[in-house]
Amino acid sequence: MSSEATNSSAGVEADRMAGAEPVPGSGKSDPILVADGVRRSFGGLTAVDVEHLEVQRGTITALIGPNGAGKSTLFNLLTGFDRVDRGTWTFEGVGINGRPGHRVARAGMVRTFQLTKALTRMTVLDNMLLGAQGQVGERMAGAFLRNVWAGQERANTRRALELLERFKLIDKRDEMAGALSGGQRKLLEMARALMTDPSMIMLDEPMAGVNPALVQSLLEHITSLRDEGKTVLFVEHDMDVIMGISDWIVVLAQGRVIAEGRPSDIRSNQQVIDAYLGAQEDDSAEARGSGDD
């Protein structure tokens, strides 16, 4: 990524982060997500051991770290897709630890997956409509009351079409999601997540397996989410991408937060360079090609 892009985002990031200290576990002025003592081990291996982590509202926060650092595990824990050994975390001031995944999503924290989960044998539009919340027709008894849910369905369809328009999938609305390309599936997954009207969106490697031409457009979509006031937390391998769009970067290694800060802080952090960037330069191709931990 060009240096101007980095600099321009550096210009505004100070404002968004409201002077947060670039040290591990630093406090934020307006945190949307606060995690304390989150720990998860598999057998004897401690995959995640995060003492304190805060995510600032309305920012793009990147979670980076070498393979096996526990990024995806932390993601799964925070979104209720895996169980913690111990630890608590609050989202918008409400404790959500121990809640199952669907209730975390209902609280407004929605996630995507590293291996894109498009519902392949359903149409793109049906994929989108699944994201809508509070549908009467999704209750078993409600399913028979077509008159009751038809109005809601029309409103949801309208919103889904607007989102498809924005993500340039409108022409594909009646096609099976399985017929989309890898990049289009990523877009669909992101649009579908937005359909739930989240306040925070967690993207697990949104660029993995996307052709370079589409990366720019995905980045624009992510930036525009922030500009609408949503909080974005994402895991990514590509350093150019991370440095270019992140307001804040959290570095994990061996399950712990070893550094936090603005892209400029991270770039010059010796610990990070040792743990991650050095390795990244050497086998970036491998890191991009093979998934994650």
Binding site: F81, K117, E138, F144
Partner: peptide, 21 residues
């Protein structure tokens, strides 16, 4: 119905459906 849509979604990928609440 929307209920059936959730059901078919579960057939395709239940984690994705769970992530949508």
């Amino acid at each position: 119905s929307p209920w059936g849509r959730v059901i078919k979604g579960i057939r395709e990928d239940e984690d994705a459906v769970r992530s949508l609440g």
